[in-house]
Design a protein around this nucleic acid. Structure first.
Length: 210
DNA sequence: CTAAGGATTAACT
DNA sequence: GTTAATCCTTAGT
């Protein structure tokens, strides 16, 4: 087998077919072990996804697009799967979500934890940290800082060369997946019991939140 | 443990 | 048009 082919095979960029699958919960689980990269100002940074949460447009009050809510902020959620939904929370932190499903079915997966792999010196610089620790990328508002993702990346096509995901042949077996209720959504109306938060068992790069 | 921070949104006039 | 409450969190006591 040609080496070039092998490298290509092991580093396959996720295509629209992946993002447009109908089951957002399944996608959230399958994203564990995938790799998220950015190439901003010619600097590549990225890592392995170890924590996600699913948000569905139906039967899910916690989802920004629930019951067809369509506003300036939620507009991209209604595009076909494979674009970035970035929004600001608590006035400070950008959170990165992947839009899934077909156009009009506004599902999303929030990326909450990342194991740093590529461009670690640049990530440290962006985070203002001297050494590598879970404070680098363990948390949804932290990994966006480390990767340089912010509000202007709202709507970015995830099959392009700015922000993208790769399957590197890393398979996470079910026994290493922890499914639990989501974080930070216990406000009026949200179903806090749904086990739609997925974590890689034993990873120190999952978010510290309750 | 708690304060911070600013956009977003719903609820008003 | 305006106001007030809210938030898929983090950093710092």
């Amino acid at each position: 087998m040609e080496e070039a082919f092998l490298v290509n095979y092991l580093r396959m960029k996720l295509a629209t077919a992946f993002y447009r699958q109908p089951d957002v919960v399944q996608i959230a689980r399958d994203l564990l072990g995938k790799y998220l990269f950015t190439n901003i100002n010619g600097v590549m940074t990225g890592g392995r996804i170890v924590e996600t949460e699913a948000y569905a447009h139906i039967n899910d009050q916690a989802c920004h697009s629930h019951l067809g809510r369509f506003t300036k902020r939620t507009r991209v959620m209604y595009e076909a799967g494979g674009v970035a939904y970035v929004y600001l929370i608590y006035g400070r932190y950008a959170l990165f979500n992947i839009i899934t499903n077909e156009a009009g079915k506004a599902d999303a997966v929030l990326i909450r934890g990342l194991e740093p792999v590529e461009g670690i010196p640049e990530m440290l610089l962006r985070r203002g940290l001297p050494t590598v620790s879970p404070k680098l990328t363990a948390g949804p508002g932290l990994l966006t800082q480390a990767l340089g993702i912010s509000i202007p990346h709202y709507g970015t096509d995830l099959t392009g060369d700015l922000i993208w995901l790769e399957d590197r042949g890393d398979v996470v077996p079910d026994e290493l997946v922890l499914a639990s209720p989501r974080v930070g959504i216990d406000y009026a109306g949200a179903d806090t019991a749904l086990p739609w938060r997925f974590r890689l068992k034993g990873s120190k790069w999952t978010s510290p939140a309750k």
